[in-house]
Structures are given as structure tokens and as C-alpha cells.
Amino acid sequence: MHWHKYVHSVIMKGKLHLFLLPLNVYYQVFASDDLNITQTPEQLQLEEGQTGVITCSWDISNPVEKIRVEWKRRNSTSPTENEHKNILASILWSTKNKSELTYNNCNNCSYNLTRDEAVLQIHSVNPSDVGIYICEVNFEIPTLQKGHGNGTQLHVGKYEPNKHPNQTKLFAAIAVVGLLAVVILLGYFLCKRSKKAEKDLLEERIQEGVELNRVNSNMNHADEDNSSSSNSERWAVSTMYESYPFDYFAMKTSEHQDNTEACSAPNLPES
């Protein structure tokens, strides 16, 4: 138990590379190989610049306080190379500190470790990343248990734009459909807007017509009142003129008769 604490203190000081091999021996001797690890995918075919994701998961039946995961890469051309060179990273998970990266030998890799899953992401892959990636899982506290995945073979090829003509056609078809949908929606909204403008214009014209009819009606009433007043005046004048000649001539005839009688010579007596 003192050896385990000593190794852990050295790991925390960043000197893991001096004790990786003894630590592996320690796990092989004292830990029981009874963890069932599921690693996916089995094959990973990528092009240069893409990102690869490898996942290892396991089931936990008993409480665990500390879990250590090591990611290793074996060169398919040299499977027997030094075990230390194969180690990419060592991550420690605990109930207190959660996840902690204690060793990293991969500049374009990122890691995530939880209670029942470990994830490795390889960013901007290149031909030097080709190999078999394996996760090794060790339960440290309260009991020692270990297990490892079956490995993921990573293949990296050069990026070729015309390598996937079907995908290009699919993307072109999706772009055409999307553009057509945008045109249809735009036409629908423009048509709806045009109809609304026509409706507003029609309502405005109707309102103007109603207002014009009201003005014309008022003007007609005013004309009728003026016409009635004028007709009354004309009737009065006409009545006056119609009665005026008869009265005038009657008066003149009476005067004439009076004057005649006054101016006639007196009757002389007969001699």
C-alpha cells in the first residue's frame, strides 16, 4: 500500500514516465483482470485534417473511488516496440477531483473520463497518427480491477475533394432543394404582402368614395335649397308683374274718363 502511495505522489509531480512500467507490473500482479471493456469503433477511416473519436465504456456494479485510464497506441508496423513509447496519456478519475490528466504524450489529442466512460479525440489527424489505439482501465480504490479494450485501427488517407462524388451530388441536391424552398417561401411572402397592399388600397379607395359621396350629397342639398329660394323669388316677381298691368290699365282708364268728362263743353240752352 505504501508503494501505491509513493507511485501516486510521483505521478502528481509529473514524473510518470519513470514509473510507468513498474506501475503496469503492479497492476498485472495485484489487479484482477475481470473488467469487461467495450471499445468502439473497431475501424476508423479518416482523411487528413479530420477528427477521430474513440470510446471505451464499462459497467460498475460496486462503488469505486478512483479509476485510472491509459490510452496506448501501437504501430501496426512495429507491434513489439517499447511499451513506454506506446502510452499516449494517463487520466485519473476520483470522486473528489473528478478527472485529471496526469500524463500526456499526444499534442493533438484530448481526453474525457467519467465514472463509466473514457473518450479519446484525435484532432487534425495526419499519417503519423496511424496505428491501433487501446484503452486500459484500472480500478484502484477500493479494490484493484483491470481490463482493456479490443483496440481501434486508425487509417488516415489524403484528402481528395473528388473522392466522394455521391456525397457531392447529395450536397448539391440538398442545396438545390434548400434554394427552391427559400424561393417558394419568398414568393409566398411577397404574394401575401402584395395582396395585403391591394386590399389596403381598395379599402382606401372605398373610403375616399364614401367621403366623396358625402360631399356631393351635401352640395346637392345646398343646391336644392338655393333653387327653392330662387324659385320663390321668381314666383313673387312673376305674380307682381302679372297683376301689375291690369291694375295699371284700370287706373288709367278711370283717369281718362274723369278727364274727358271734366274737359267736355257745357250744354248750351237752345234758343
Rank of each mutant, 00 (worst) to 15 (best):
E255G: 07
E48Q: 13
S217W: 10
N226P: 07
D200Y: 03
N108E: 08
S229R: 14
K163V: 03
P127Y: 04
H164D: 14
V183W: 05
H4A: 09
K5P: 06
Y248C: 14
L180N: 03
N231M: 14
L154W: 04
F171W: 02
L170P: 03
S90N: 07
L20I: 14
L180S: 11
V119K: 04
I184S: 09
N97Y: 12
I54S: 05
A250N: 14
C109E: 01
P161A: 08
S232W: 07
V119F: 06
V10Q: 02
E198T: 10
Y188L: 08
K169D: 04
L88E: 00
L154H: 00
T77Y: 11
T38F: 08
P161E: 11
G147N: 07
L202R: 12
G157Q: 06
V69Y: 00
K169I: 09
N216W: 10
T143W: 08
N75K: 07
N97V: 15
E242G: 11
Y244M: 13
P269W: 01
L268A: 12
P41C: 08
K96F: 09
F189W: 12
K5C: 05
P127A: 11
E233W: 12
Y159L: 10
E47F: 01
F30I: 04
T51F: 07
V25G: 06
N24E: 13
G14V: 06
H8E: 15
S90F: 02
V183L: 12
P161D: 01
G151M: 00
S9M: 01
L185R: 03
Y26A: 05
K195I: 08
L154K: 09
Q153Y: 08
E203F: 05
W71P: 03
S227P: 01
K158I: 01
N220F: 12
